[in-house]
Simulated assay, not measured.
Amino acid sequence: MLTKWCFDNFYNGYMSPEYAFHGLVSIKTDVFSFGVLLLELVSGMKNTHRYHSEHPLNLVGYTWQLWNEDKALEVMDPTLDGFCPHNQILRCIHIGLLCVQDHAIDRPTMLDVVSMLSNETMPLPQPKQPAFFITTVVQQEVGGPEVKSENCSINQVSISVMEAR
């Protein structure tokens, strides 16, 4: 059961690369997950979907691409428009990208993240390339069957895996 949980969280993009590939846990492991969550909150999108028609980009990859093209606000959830200043949205995207950087040493600590979020005058370093910025399965493009994840839990609390024997 733990193996399935690890695979699901790795595939969904919440698991840090150092933990997924090497089993290493550090104070930066949760920072990675928080960064993905922050990008999901700002965008209103899940990290597991494809967001680019030409390349198999997940939310992190799509946000990274837009960031590099100076179009980061395009990832913003339209329902936030008018409720939150664009500079705050851009700051959240910037902090989210800092949290999902490939190497743990490049990521801020959670204490730093809290400081960055609460102090708008605090300067932010430029983010480096994130980890897991492309999706690993692109079956629809190669003509394979569409894979749909199905929630097998009746009460939304337990995790059940439906497998044939």
Rank of each mutant, 00 (worst) to 15 (best):
L90C: 07
I27P: 02
A20W: 01
V114M: 14
P125D: 09
E54N: 08
T48L: 05
M110A: 07
S158Q: 11
F83V: 09
G35A: 04
N87T: 09
I154Y: 07
F32S: 01
V161W: 06
K28Q: 12
H94R: 03
P108I: 03
V147S: 06
Q88H: 10
R165D: 09
E120K: 07
F132V: 05
H94D: 04
I159F: 07
P85K: 11
P123Y: 07
G23N: 03
C92G: 06
Y62K: 04
T136K: 10
S160H: 09
I27E: 12
P145C: 04
D106C: 07
L97M: 03
N151G: 10
Q139S: 06
F34R: 06
V75K: 01
L59V: 06
P125V: 14
Q156C: 12
V161L: 15
P78W: 00
L80A: 08
I154D: 14
S115H: 10
M45F: 13
G143R: 03
P130K: 06
W5H: 05
V142G: 01
C92F: 05
D112N: 07
Q126I: 14
F83A: 11
G144H: 05
L57S: 05
P127G: 06
V138F: 07
F133I: 04
V75W: 00
S115T: 13
A164G: 14
N155C: 06
N119F: 12
Y14P: 00
R165G: 12
T135S: 15
F34D: 03
N12Q: 09
F133E: 08
L90K: 08
I93T: 05
S149M: 08
E146Q: 05
L38Q: 00
T109Q: 05
T135F: 00
K28W: 02
N58I: 03
L98T: 05
W67N: 01
N9W: 08
R91K: 02
M110K: 02
R165C: 10
H22F: 13
E74R: 13
Q139K: 15
C6W: 03
H86E: 14
D77T: 08
C84I: 15
Q140G: 08
E40L: 00
P127R: 01
S149I: 11
F83E: 15
L37H: 02
E163D: 13
L98G: 02
L117Y: 04
F83N: 14
M76P: 03
T136V: 07
F34C: 08
L41D: 09
K28D: 03
K148W: 12
L98M: 04
C6S: 12
A104D: 11
N87R: 12
L41R: 05
N58Q: 00
L124W: 07
L2E: 13
V137I: 15
V25I: 09
N9R: 12
V114C: 09
Q88T: 15
P130R: 04
L38A: 07
M1E: 10
T136G: 11
I89V: 14
S43D: 08
C92P: 02
T48H: 04
E69R: 13
P85L: 06
Q140T: 13
W67F: 10
N58F: 05
V161E: 06
N87P: 03
I95M: 02
M76G: 01
D8A: 14
C84Q: 08
N119T: 10
G23W: 02
Y62D: 03
D81E: 15
N12E: 14
L80F: 11
M1H: 13
S26M: 12
V75S: 10
N151V: 11
Q88G: 03
Q65L: 15
P108C: 08
L66Y: 00
N119C: 14
H103E: 15
